[in-house]
Simulated scan of single mutants.
Amino acid sequence: MHEEFGLSGADYTILAELTRVPGGQLRMLEFARTLGWEKSRLSHQLTRMAKRGLVERIECADDRRGAYVAVTGEGREAITAAAPRHVDDVRRLFIDHLTPGQITLLAEISDLVLERIDATG
């Protein structure tokens, strides 16, 4: 990913999440929770990405302590270019090695884990 598209795993994770949400932006604290990252880790990563034009920070008009992070046009282009390769890699390295029954079981386990995470916040 890094050599071909200039994106680290963390870059890809952030861009993928931002491009999934309506409007392409999230509040910093909510984003850190969504990723399961400490706020300082997210802040450092976003600073590096902002310098490269992939994301931007937007001050929250109604809460001076809050800020949003938003994907830029350049960030959207980067994730759009890298996503097909990422999907191919996941399929080649992971999915293609599982039987249909294992994939079904994996989906059931993932659903259970996600339900538990949602229930506990």
Rank of each mutant, 00 (worst) to 15 (best):
E108D: 07
A61V: 13
L105V: 03
E59A: 15
P84L: 00
A70R: 15
L106K: 12
L106C: 09
L98N: 09
P100I: 06
P100Y: 05
R116V: 13
A61I: 10
I95V: 14
H86Y: 03
A83G: 00
E115V: 07
D118T: 12
F94T: 11
A78C: 01
P100H: 08
Q102H: 12
F94E: 06
D62I: 05
V69L: 01
I117R: 13
V90N: 03
P100Q: 07
A119D: 14
L93D: 13
L112N: 14
T104F: 05
I79M: 02
G101I: 07
D62Y: 13
E77A: 15
I79C: 00
Y68C: 01
D62P: 03
E74N: 11
I95F: 09
V113G: 05
D88C: 07
S110N: 04
I117G: 04
T104N: 12
F94A: 11
H86C: 00
C60H: 15
L105H: 05
C60I: 03
A61F: 12
L114S: 14
E74F: 08
T104D: 14
E77R: 14
E108V: 11
V87H: 02
L98S: 10
G75E: 05
T80P: 01
S110I: 05
A82E: 04
A107Q: 09
A107H: 07
